[in-house]
Computed example of a mutant assay.
Amino acid sequence: MSGAVIAARGAAPGQVQSLVRALHVLRAVAAAPDGLILRDVARGVGLPVSTAHRLLTTLESERFVRANPDTGAWTVGPEAFAVGQGFVRARDIAALARPRLRALMQRWSETASLYVEAEGGLVCVAQVESRQMMRAVARIGAVVGLHCTAAGKALLAALPAPERAAALATLDYPAHTARTLQDRAALAQALAETRARGWALDDEELVEGVRCAAAAILDHEGRPLAALSVSGPVGRVTPATLETLGAAVAATAAELSREMGWRGAAG
């Protein structure tokens, strides 16, 4: 039954049919604890056996599935596990961060958010909104740029120098406001300031009238896992309050880094 549903759905406009079919195949294999032989995979996704086999061997070449040489059953491979772990890490850090987000919002009366890197940008995965009438809000799941956000700068600044340089070389720098950093040199300078200060600043660079302070959360190896941010209208998040706000965000991010296993120096 599920195979008929999958087959009937096909690829929506704008989608790549072969990719959609491959994902259906991967989903079918993942749903079978003992694996599936080729014939059952094809039947489950409503495809010819030859097409299913071609998709399986392509997925196998990228280590997303593997075939048991004795039984012929296909099961998920290590790359599928690695991709799934990426989601688990994001989910776990979001659950861990939520009480801290709430505490930051209550202390500062501004929106506190958690971002992770995805698709060369940032995705907001958790947020506690300010109760103020005028407040900054990011849509959960929306992708925003690295160059124009405090969270993006925090993540970039926490990368090892060679990776940071490579990232800056490949980023696009679209302007969102008159204050958006629009070239590699300007962003590199901002990242140097971020590292020296211990927290990153978005000074009306993504949205006019909104300022944001952010700091990176590190994993057990000291690599940036996520970024914690507090954002609000410039009338309340003023230059006079930024230093204290940024330090509070950095201290909270350091606490979360320690909970994720990081034992090195902060910053």
Rank of each mutant, 00 (worst) to 15 (best):
A167P: 04
D203R: 10
P233Q: 10
A142K: 14
S257V: 04
R223N: 08
R197L: 13
P33T: 09
P13Q: 03
A216H: 02
F64H: 03
D172N: 12
L256I: 00
L55D: 12
M1E: 04
S50I: 06
L47G: 04
G10Q: 12
V49S: 14
R89C: 06
V125H: 03
A216D: 03
H147K: 05
D92G: 11
A95L: 13
P239H: 05
A82T: 06
A254S: 15
G10S: 08
G120H: 11
R223P: 08
A28H: 00
A188V: 00
T252P: 13
A265P: 11
H53E: 14
R102F: 03
T51D: 15
A240P: 00
L218W: 05
W74F: 09
S257I: 00
V210M: 14
R39V: 11
V88E: 10
D172I: 02
C148E: 00
G72H: 01
L256V: 01
V210Q: 03
A161Q: 14
L171E: 07
R263T: 13
H176L: 06
V123M: 09
L181F: 12
L36T: 01
R258N: 07
Q85L: 14
S257D: 03
I217P: 12
P78V: 12
A97S: 14
G264C: 01
P224V: 01
A200C: 02
V128R: 04
V125R: 07
Q182D: 09
M260I: 08
T241P: 04
W74M: 12
R184T: 02
R102S: 12
A253R: 00
D92K: 07
G246Y: 02
G198R: 00
A196C: 09
E129G: 04
A157V: 08
G198Q: 06
S2Q: 09
Y173V: 02
A126L: 07
G198V: 02
A265V: 06
A250L: 02
Q189D: 14
P69L: 15
P162E: 09
D202M: 03
R89S: 15
V45Q: 10
R184L: 13
L55I: 11
R54N: 15
V49F: 11
A82V: 09
E129Q: 08
V249G: 04
G246H: 04
V249H: 07
A138L: 08
G3S: 05
G235K: 04
D202C: 07
L242Y: 00
R63I: 04
T244Q: 15
E119K: 09
P224S: 06
G10I: 09
A8L: 14
A165V: 08
R107C: 04
A4G: 11
R179H: 05
R184H: 05
R98E: 10
P224Y: 01
G77W: 00
G77E: 03
A175E: 12
A167D: 05
V128W: 11
A240R: 12
L156Q: 00
L101A: 05
T238Q: 02
A32H: 08
A94L: 04
A188G: 05
A30P: 00
L26R: 13
A95T: 10
H220E: 15
V210D: 12
V207M: 06
G3N: 15
A253D: 09
F87N: 08
G222E: 07
L245V: 15
L47Q: 07
F87H: 15
G152P: 06
L59R: 05
L228Y: 10
A112V: 02
G120R: 02
L19M: 13
E163T: 03
A42F: 01
A240E: 13
D219G: 13
V207F: 11
